[in-house]
Write a protein that binds this DNA or RNA. Sequence first.
DNA 1: TGCCAGGCCGGGT
DNA 2: ACCCGGCATGGC
Length: 215
Amino acid sequence: MKGSGLSNTLKKTYKKLFKAFSRQYWWPGRTQFEIIVGAILTQNTAWTNVEKAIKNLKKAKVLYPRKMHDLSERELAKLIRPAGYFNIKAKRLKHFLNYLFDKYSGRLDKLFKKRTDKLRRELLLVNGVGMETADSILLYAGSHPIFVVDTYTKRILSRHMIISEDANYDEIQDIFMKNLPHDVKIFNEYHALFVKLGKDFCRNRKPLCSKCPMM
DNA sequence: TGCCAGGCCGGGT
DNA sequence: ACCCGGCATGGC
């Protein structure tokens, strides 16, 4: 599919989803730091499990960069247990915090002042932060205009023949970045709508294609 | 009761 | 440049 056709398809799809589901009010988290922590905890994990972990962190009053940085890895792992992969995720959170304190003295406002492309490259150097996590942090915590691609995005687009089965992350992201205005609100809402559609109608186990608003 | 969930890394080919 | 096993809890 070529340029203008694709652009129209993406805009129509957005309108269809927005009409079906309306605003999603993402990211489900208030502070920038909570969003970053959630982005790491939700890696290949159901959000309901992440919520339990976040609740533990709040109850322990460690959902702040300084407090979590001071916490031992073992203690952190214990608190985030319900999110699964708790040992490796505790390491990943620590890696991010080490980076944040080494380079930005623990200040997220400083971190997010960096240019989008430079910051993205930096985030990808943090062990445990891959492309989706980096882009989620950029868009939802930092309000940088970048499109987040996840399994739902891939599954939905490939099932609807808009992309091929084996399209990789960058290719899919490019489709959106090259065919939509670079608008934080649009990128935010679009990805959230894909997740909503994915959860309700496009699970791997139980697809509900007959009722899918895309059809 | 097995399979899956808003990935990513490290080692192998 | 891919491909694969490992990481782990909770819900349906």
